[in-house]
Amino acid sequence: MIAPLAYTKPRSLAEALELLQIAHSLPLAGGTDLLVELKKSNKRPALLVDLKGIPDLDELALTADRGLRIGANVTMNRLIESGELVSAFPALTDAAMTVGTDQIRNRATVGGNLCHASPSADLAPPLFVLDTQLVVASLQGERRIPISALWQGAKQNTLQPGELIVQIEVPWPGAAAKMAFLKKMRTAGHDLALVNMAGLLDPVQGRCRICIGGCACTPVLLPGTDTLYQESRDPDQLTARLLALAEATIVPIDDVRASARYRREIVAVFLQRLLKLLAVETKGWGRC
């Protein structure tokens, strides 16, 4: 049961930001994480500010000059159902496809998935490797932060009270870039990621990005991978160096879902599979 609270549904961003000034108010997006928390934890907001009445947050646009812009309210299923997106950003739509169930994906929003700041948020790895910027709004105005700056710790974001993610900006990765997403679950059904991973490889621009989720208190973008890639494109050597880097960078824990040891094992397996996929194939479901 959810304890008594107040609810309001502003029609504009400005109005929403005003409302979020009220003490103990919380923004409500898809609700698929928040409502579970309200039922199970001692979190007691006085006011829920439903963001779904704000048209500004609904945009989903793919343009040649500005890349992909995703309004915070866009649901997982809206991402998946956009044919254009599936071909342009397969790792992103593959990741969205693994979020919860069909019913969850009809409600869960991109903004909500990120704000929840889970270390294993499925959208994080693809958005990390794509150099995504978040547009954060408050009464003081808008600011842009790189997506990596959103995570403070497990389920803790760096947003100030009264701040909202309004838009997710994903630059074009370039025509030669390939990307892929992999996720380890306990069953073939719906599950949180034990480990998830996205990679981007652009042989023309010499870019190589790997982001690993579920293996630290935040998603981990492996550092210095562009340089590694530029130094050696030999697949075996690159794989070995990335493996060593990943091994040294991640800090997985033992928990109810998996042991740290198994997570490390999966990271090694996934990294090799990811690099193979990036070299030959970027389509597919990425369920492993």
């Binding site: 609810y7 409500l28 609700g31 698929t32 409502l35 579970v36 039922k39 199970k40 829920l48 299923n77 919860g100 169930t101 069909d102 019913q103 969850i104 009809n106 409600r107 719906h190």
Partner: peptide, 22 residues
Amino acid sequence: SGECGACTVLLDGRPVNACLVL
């Protein structure tokens, strides 16, 4: 908590977990 689907109804034609919608 949105894991089992027994509460599913159609909201504007789409299946949702009614337990996770106010």
